[in-house]
Design a protein around this nucleic acid. Structure first.
Length: 286
DNA sequence: ATAGGGTTACAC
DNA sequence: GTGTAACCCTAT
């Protein structure tokens, strides 16, 4: 019994994108049930939607294979030849995840939730190899094989794993090589090493104005400069996103405040025995 | 129901 | 062989 794979059509893809625009990523069931999309997505489960979105996010995050998109893209030839920047912005849940998550400060010291046994191996390998331009799968694989007993299909697993890590911005792919993301490396590696023997940070920070600190000391000046530029670019981009986010949050805060006032007014009057609706109060107040 | 890891099928 | 898309399984 061969279950012939059911490739996604561009219509389905489009429906999924619009569904996410409308309901947000993560509301797969809602999207799937929405009468607007259910005709197109009838043969897809909510899990299928999730998986497909995951794939779309990978390719949209620009990492790895944007240039050699081999996916036949018979996009609507007439009206929207280009995916429109909105979609790209929206389809980068990973960027948001990279920017916002207080993830690491949540961990309790001892309950350091090991991400997954294999992930720590990869982390270790990429850290120790210290290749500024990343390490090839074979290199990583070798490294890990030397330290751990691995299963025969390990390499394959490793590929899949790396790919997923790219999806969550913990790893980036440069040509054929993989390396830890700057931002993630700093957060993940710092607490990993013995606090006693990693005090040379201060010495380094004098010449490298932070940002490329964790790289091999033998780095060429040219390479270092290139890295800095790339880093700076990435940072300015991020900064921009952060600005927008801050603005948005500010607005939300205002609205929240108004709502709070409204709520307390409502509460006060209700507790006095008055029976009224939120609309009545809102009307008086605004 | 969703998120994430793992597996299988396919294209290059 | 390698990378990717679709599918499957499990924990939360």
């Amino acid at each position: 019994m061969g279950a012939p794979k059911q490739k996604w059509t561009s219509e389905e893809e489009e429906a999924l994108r619009r569904g996410v625009l409308k309901h947000g990523a993560g509301k797969w069931r809602t999207i799937q049930k929405d009468p607007e999309f259910s005709p197109v997505l009838s043969s897809r489960s909510n899990i299928d939607l999730k998986d497909k979105w995951r794939n779309l996010s990978f390719s949209a995050s620009g990492l790895g294979s944007r240039d050699k998109l081999r996916v036949p893209r018979p996009k609507a030839p007439s009206s929207s030849p280009s995916p429109s920047p909105q979609l790209l912005l929206l389809s980068a849940p990973n960027n948001v995840a990279e920017a916002s998550p207080p993830e690491d400060c949540e961990k309790s010291p001892q309950d350091d939730k090991t991400p997954s046994p294999k992930f720590s191996m990869i982390l270790e390998a990429l850290d120790e190899l210290k290749e500024p331009n990343g390490s090839e799968v074979a290199t990583i694989c070798n490294f890990i094989e030397q330290r751990h007993e691995v299963q025969p299909n390990f390499r394959r697993l490793l590929c899949a794993k790396l790919r997923r890590l790219i999806g969550v911005n913990k790893v980036e792919k440069i040509d054929k090589s993989y390396k830890l993301t700057d931002s993630y490396a700093k957060r993940a590696l710092a607490p990993m090493k013995d606090p006693s023997l990693k005090k040379k940070d201060s010495a380094k920070s004098s010449k490298a104005a932070k940002g490329v600190g964790q790289l091999s000391p033998a780095l060429d000046a040219a390479e270092a400069a290139a890295m800095k530029v790339a880093d700076a670019e990435a940072k300015s981009h991020l900064a921009n996103e952060h600005m927008m986010e801050v603005e948005r949050i500010g607005k939300m805060a205002e609205e929240t405040e108004s709502l709070l006032e409204l709520a307390s007014e409502l509460y006060e009057r209700c507790s006095r025995g008055e029976a009224l609706t939120i609309l009545q109060v809102a009307h008086r107040e605004f």
